[in-house]
């Protein structure tokens, strides 16, 4: 029971502080789930992001479902998803019901002008640590750099890059194993 509560509260916190959606919550999830709770390891976190990217739907929810499922099965997944979704649900519902014109409030606007560039920094800052844990060298650094440039400048969908990586890796392992068998 205690662990369900921990899962719920952790994802509630993640949901409540993700502004801008999607990638903006990665640093927070990483800090909470990998750094503080140690529920999953750093490399496993990168695997999780690849899985969450490959499945359709809301990235934050996908991440919550994986972590919850790994911890406590289906019930853990439901707990984590509810935790992640509830803050937005409550806040948006209140806005829809009461203040549909709050976005014109100058105080709110000022606060968000400060938050937006900080969110970009939050996304960029953990990259170095991630690169170290993925054992990226100067030679292999071409992969993340090319990926980032293709998405940023050419606007290729990340799904294509993931698919190409999967297909080429499977082909590489298949032919490598075949070669080894021939040599034997």
């Amino acid at each position: 029971m205690q662990q369900y509560l921990q899962i719920f509260l952790t994802f509630f916190k993640i949901g409540a502080f993700t502004i801008g959606g999607g990638y903006a919550m990665i640093p927070i999830i990483q800090e909470e789930v990998v750094g503080r709770r140690k529920w999953i390891a750093q490399e496993e976190f990168l695997d999780l992001l690849a899985l969450a990217q490959s499945a359709p739907g809301v990235l934050a929810a996908n991440t919550a479902i994986f972590v919850g499922y790994k911890m406590r099965g289906i019930r853990g997944a439901i707990t984590a998803t509810l935790g992640a979704a509830l803050p937005s649900f409550i806040i948006i519902l209140l806005i829809a019901i009461f203040f549909s014109n709050y976005k014109d409030n100058p105080t709110v606007e000022a606060i968000f002008k400060g938050i937006r560039p900080a969110v970009v920094a939050l996304i960029a800052a953990p990259l170095y640590k991630m690169a170290k844990s993925a054992k990226i060298t100067y030679r292999t650094a071409i992969i993340p750099i090319a990926t980032a440039l293709l998405i940023w400048l050419v606007r290729i969908s990340p799904i294509w890059i993931i698919l190409i990586t999967i297909v080429s890796t499977v082909a590489y392992i298949y032919f490598r194993d075949k070669d080894e068998q021939k040599q034997l």
Binding site: L49, T140, I161
Partner: peptide
């Protein structure tokens, strides 16, 4: 596959920062 995807995922996150 997961090992090859790790550097790609790092690229995806870098792209997210650049796009923003």
């Amino acid at each position: 596959v997961l090992k090859s995807l790790r550097p790609v995922v790092i690229g995806l996150i870098a792209a997210a920062a650049l796009v923003l």
